Simulated scan of single mutants.
Amino acid sequence: MSDDPFRTKLSDFEFQVLREGGTERPYTGEYWDNKQPGTYFCRACGAKLFESETKFDSRCGWPSFYQPAEGSNVTYLKDTSMGMQRIEVRCGSCDSHLGHLFEGEGFNTPTDLRYCINSVSMTFEPAEHDDEGAA
């Protein structure tokens, strides 16, 4: 997919992260400490990525999840940049860079996986509250 449609839709920084594989600095992103219930979507194309129920505090400074949302479309690529062996997480719908996947770090989660995702790669939609019967 060509980057051209994304150049006008995304800010320069969003484009750098999503389309050029950049990263944001830790503890600076919009969602690293978001605790609201809701769903995270790809900022570039709107594809569903993660649910807040799978978000956990990994103390790394980026939003961390232990699994993608049901029905999400994430893909994985081997990443040997920066002298490390990592697994890159990409949006399966538009092939945008989201972050990296780490495993076996000992977090007390059901999968022992950490999807370390750039806040700027996502948008967040809070869960709707059922206010019926509220006083």
Rank of each mutant, 00 (worst) to 15 (best):
P63A: 01
D57P: 10
L77W: 11
A47L: 04
D79K: 03
E70Q: 11
S64L: 12
G46C: 03
C60W: 00
K48W: 08
S52W: 00
A69E: 01
G71F: 11
W62Y: 00
P63S: 02
T80W: 11
F65I: 10
C60S: 02
E53T: 12
L77H: 15
L49P: 10
P68R: 08
G46T: 07
N73I: 05
K55S: 00
E53K: 07
G71L: 14
Y76C: 04
S58P: 15
T75Q: 13
F50Y: 07
F65G: 15
E51L: 14
D79R: 01
W62V: 00
P63R: 06
G46N: 01
E51T: 14
E70N: 09
G71Q: 12
Q67C: 12
L49F: 06
T54S: 12
G46K: 08
D57N: 05
T54Y: 04
S64T: 07
Q67V: 10
A47N: 12
A47S: 12
A47F: 01
K48L: 13
Q67M: 15
T80C: 09
E70I: 06
G71R: 12
K55Y: 08
T80N: 14
L49D: 15
R59F: 08
A47Y: 01
K78Y: 03
T80R: 13
P68T: 07
E53I: 10
K48T: 13
T80K: 14
K48I: 13
D57W: 02
T75D: 15
F56G: 05
S72F: 02
